[in-house]
Structures are given as structure tokens and as C-alpha cells.
Design a protein around this nucleic acid. Structure first.
Length: 439
RNA sequence: CGGGGCGUGGCGCAGCCUGGUUAGCGCGCGUGUUUUGGGUACACGAGGCCGCCGGUUCGAAUCCGGCCGCCCCGACCA
């Protein structure tokens, strides 16, 4: 994309409504614009990041054996009346009426709907286990939306639902999802820690929230450094496979025996027993939450399937959420500096930005065009007629992992400068060397 | 939902208390000159229902009332 032709409205100053870092940077970098309290429009740069996170989440869900579906945003109230949550959910649920005066709602979550879909088709234990997920916009009419996309009323969420014939199977599904989550967060470039959580309105008796560390987090968290040292992506010895019950068991044990707690569940006595150098504490942002809730919905909604002995059984369920749009803000909270955002390579909107420091200079223009063509759409080309300083500042602000700086001096000699955003390190290279380095 | 604050060109703000010419400043935007590796300088220019409705007044951005919107702190949440 050529910056001169793009819709990426960067700003030098921060709009007054934005207080926390990620919100300020997202507005300044031209990623989003607010349309109402807690409701945002995603502009090209922000949407690219959102899509990248969505892609990683999808890949890991698929790898764990979950199947993607897409449920509607608007749901009939009947399903919620059936489960009993139509009354329980309160004002957070946006209730609407259609032209026939039927009660509808904008989905805040999808347990009821997925359970309805399941009961329509699944009749036998032979068809289990099943894990279904979708990535869809949700609406929760928060009393007080804040922190930009991290606490919006409308948000993009990946929610998965597992169906198993018995408790043992449900636990297995739960562990699979937990592993998928740790892999997902690692790929996004985050250190996420699973912490035991209350189950809240969704109900159930086994639940973990996934928390990443960032100074602006909403709650105080404590955990053992072991979590940071683990590699959830490696396949060999020490790694974990979704397919192996032993691996999942070992993985789950590792996740639940090391100390990790939010301030609500913090146990000062246990904490005191941990070696000081292994203690990690700070503010945390919740980026995912998983629940096992057994037969809560299959009972209330009358779901029965044939068990092995031919007798009817209520399947056991779990649900698994990742705040996809929240992650965009959360990553920025965890990865930025004075100058702006620092994108992890895996979710960056562009691999690199090409800075043409002197548009109109034949050597610069030619070199930039050649580079831009080689990137084949994966780089942003700053071809604006602005001063070098403006381009440097915007490049840092937008946070591209690599900056390929093309100035008249270097261009004449066939050289460019490659800057790594995260470290600030710069090297002079030939264009081909730079391309190879970026990969 | 309790407490606090704010709404003035795209962004950041001043003006309001003490009503009175064409509503001002910085940034950004346009044109030109200048500068040419970290938000250059100068000149000229475009751009405003002063959140909305009503009231007071000869006269309202300014005073009064109502409404709407947004932000922050707290209680609550992916």
C-alpha cells in the first residue's frame, strides 16, 4: 500500500477522550475511530492487525480440532428464556424488537444458540466430541465502556463450545482448548498466564482466565516465572500435542500447579513460599476466559442424546472465549515505547515500511519502487511528499517491525538503511540483503 | 448506577467569571518560496450550526433552564 493513497489518518496530537496508551496510539496511528461510547470503526491499518490476530486464533482453533461456524449477531429471545438467562443477564444485554414486535437481542455470547444448533442435529454419543467456534461481533451494553477497544460495548470475540458425552471427555476438551490458547498467545507475541477464575453468570465449576502483563492492567496479578519459560509451540520432547491425552494431562498439570492468581484469589502464604527471583507480579489484562459448566445448558434446554447403552444423556459442555478486538489494544499495552507502537512480527499490519526520504530523487524513487514491488503487498510504502522527520515519526508511531530507509546518499551507492523498530538497531545494507533480513 | 469534569474549524486549546465590532491561537490542510536523514521557516489562503432546544436581553460562545453527547474515579465485566 502506498501511504500517499491510503486511508491512514495519523495524528500528531491525541484526542482528549483517549486516556490510556493503547487507545491514544490507536487513534494517533489511524487504526480506529470512535463512533459512540465503546463502539469503534476499524480503519485499514487497524483492520489488518485485527485480521492477523483473527487468523492466528483461527489456525490454532483448527489445529486443536475445533470447527468454525458463523452464528448471527441477532438472536431470538426465546432461546434465552428457555435457558433462564433472559432475565438473569440484566441490562448488559441489548434487547430489541423486530417489526412484528418479537423480542430479539444482540448476542452478548452464544451458549444458547450453539446448544440449540447442537440439539437439532446431534442424536448419539457416537457423534461426540464436538468443538464448534465462531469469530463474531458481540454486544454487551457495559455501564461504563472505557480504555478504547479493550473495554468496548461492541467487540470481536472468538467463542468456542465443546460437547462431550461425559465429564472425562469434557475435561479433555477443556485441556485441549487451554493448550490452543497458550499456543495462540505465544504466537501473537504475548506472555499469557492462565489463572483460576470465578465462573460468573456463565456458571460451572472449572474456569481459567488468561492474563497478560501490562502496566495499565485492570487487576493485580501474581505468578511463578515458570509460565514465561515454557514453549507451547515446540513439538518435540517437552512439547505438547493436542492429540495425546498424556501430553494434555502433563500440560494441564504444569498450568495448574505453578502459582498464578489475581488479587481476588491471591494467597499470601503460598506466595511467600516461592523463591523471590521466580516471583512475577504486576497489572494484568484478561484476554481470554474458558469455562467448564457441565450440563447447565443441556439440562435447561432439554438436550439429550443416546449414550452407549442407548439411554438418554445430557452432554457436558464448556465454552472458551478470546477477546480478539481487545487483543489489539492489549498487545499495544504490552508493546510500545515513547514513539509509538511496536508490533510483534506475527500480527503487524505490514512487515515493513519503505521510507522514501526524498521523493523526486531519481535514485530514491527507483530504488523504492523496486523494493515495493518485491514486497508484493506486504510492505507499506511511504511515498508522501513530506519531510524525513514526518516519515520517521509516523513509521515509529505505526510500529512496523522493520523500516527500510531510502535516502539520496545511500540510494546513489545502492544501499539502504534497515531499522528494527523493537530495538532501534540500524544497519546499512544492499536492498537485497535488507529483503533477506526481513524475510 | 453514585461522584467529578468537559463539549468552540480535522486535532489540541484560549475566550465565558465581568454579555457589545469581522470568535482567536498552535498544529494540521491548500498554494508558493525555502529546507532536504528525526514533526523546517516564511507568505498567502480555505475551513466554524461556539453540542441541541428554549428563556432573559436592544444584543448571548458568554447569563438562566432543560436535553443530548463524551471522558475520568468507584461498584461490574471477553
Amino acid at each position: 500500500m502506498r501511504l500517499s493513497r491510503s486511508f491512514i489518518p495519523t495524528m500528531k496530537e491525541t484526542p482528549a477522550e483517549a486516556q490510556i496508551t493503547s487507545h491514544r496510539l490507536m487513534l494517533r496511528a489511524g487504526m480506529v475511530r470512535q463512533t459512540s461510547a465503546g463502539i469503534y470503526a476499524w480503519l485499514p491499518l487497524g483492520l489488518r492487525v485485527l485480521k492477523n490476530i483473527e487468523r492466528l486464533v483461527r489456525e490454532e482453533q483448527d489445529a486443536a480440532g475445533a470447527q468454525e461456524v458463523l452464528m448471527p449477531t441477532i438472536q431470538p429471545a426465546e432461546l434465552w428464556k428457555e435457558s433462564g438467562r433472559y432475565e438473569d443477564y440484566g441490562k448488559e444485554m441489548l434487547r430489541i424488537k423486530d417489526r412484528h414486535d418479537r423480542d430479539m437481542l444482540y448476542g452478548p455470547t452464544n451458549e444458547e444458540m450453539i446448544t440449540d444448533l447442537f440439539r437439532q442435529s446431534v442424536k448419539s454419543y457416537r457423534e461426540l466430541p464436538q468443538i464448534l467456534y465462531h469469530i463474531q461481533w458481540k454486544f454487551r451494553d457495559e455501564v461504563r465502556p472505557r480504555f478504547g477497544v479493550m473495554r468496548g460495548r461492541e467487540f470481536l470475540m472468538k467463542d468456542a463450545y465443546s460437547f462431550d458425552i461425559d465429564h472425562a471427555g469434557a475435561v479433555q476438551s477443556y485441556r485441549k482448548m487451554m493448550l490452543a490458547y497458550m499456543r495462540t498467545f505465544q504466537r501473537i507475541g504475548l506472555k499469557a498466564i492462565p489463572m483460576e477464575a470465578d465462573t460468573g453468570p456463565i456458571g460451572g465449576d472449572l474456569s481459567h482466565e488468561f492474563i497478560i502483563l501490562a502496566p495499565t492492567g485492570e487487576s493485580q496479578v501474581y505468578y511463578d516465572a515458570t509460565f514465561e519459560e515454557m514453549d507451547y509451540l515446540s513439538a518435540g520432547a517437552g512439547g505438547f500435542s493436542h492429540e495425546s491425552a498424556e501430553d494434555l494431562e502433563r500440560f494441564f498439570k504444569a498450568m495448574t500447579t505453578q502459582y498464578a492468581a489475581t488479587d481476588e484469589k491471591h494467597d499470601a502464604t503460598k506466595w511467600a513460599m516461592i523463591d523471590a527471583p521466580r516471583k512475577r507480579e504486576g497489572r494484568g489484562i484478561e484476554v481470554g476466559h474458558i469455562f467448564y459448566f457441565g450440563t447447565k445448558y443441556t439440562k435447561s434446554m432439554g438436550v439429550r442424546i443416546a449414550g452407549a447403552d442407548g439411554k438418554p444423556v445430557h452432554p457436558e459442555m464448556g465454552s472458551y472465549g478470546i477477546g480478539v478486538s481487545r487483543l489489539v489494544g492489549a498487545v499495544i499495552e504490552a508493546s510500545h515505547d515513547e514513539a509509538g507502537i511496536i508490533w510483534p512480527d506475527s500480527i503487524a499490519p505490514f512487515k515493513a515500511v519503505i521510507l522514501n526520504l526524498k521523493r523526486g530523487d531519481a535514485a530514491c524513487d527507483a530504488l523504492c519502487e523496486a523494493l515495493y514491488a518485491k514486497f508484493a503487498g506486504t510492505a507499506l510504502y511511504d511515498d508522501r511528499e513530506d519531510r524525513a522527520g514526518v516519515k520517521f515519526a509516523d513509521a515509529d508511531l505505526m510500529g512496523h517491525p522493520w523500516q527500510v530507509v531510502v535516502g539520496p546518499r545511500g540510494a546513489a551507492a545502492g544501499r539502504v538503511e534497515l531499522k528494527r523498530r523493537a530495538t532501534g538497531e540500524r544497519v546499512e545494507l544492499t536492498p537485497d540483503e535488507a529483503l533477506a533480513r526481513i524475510g
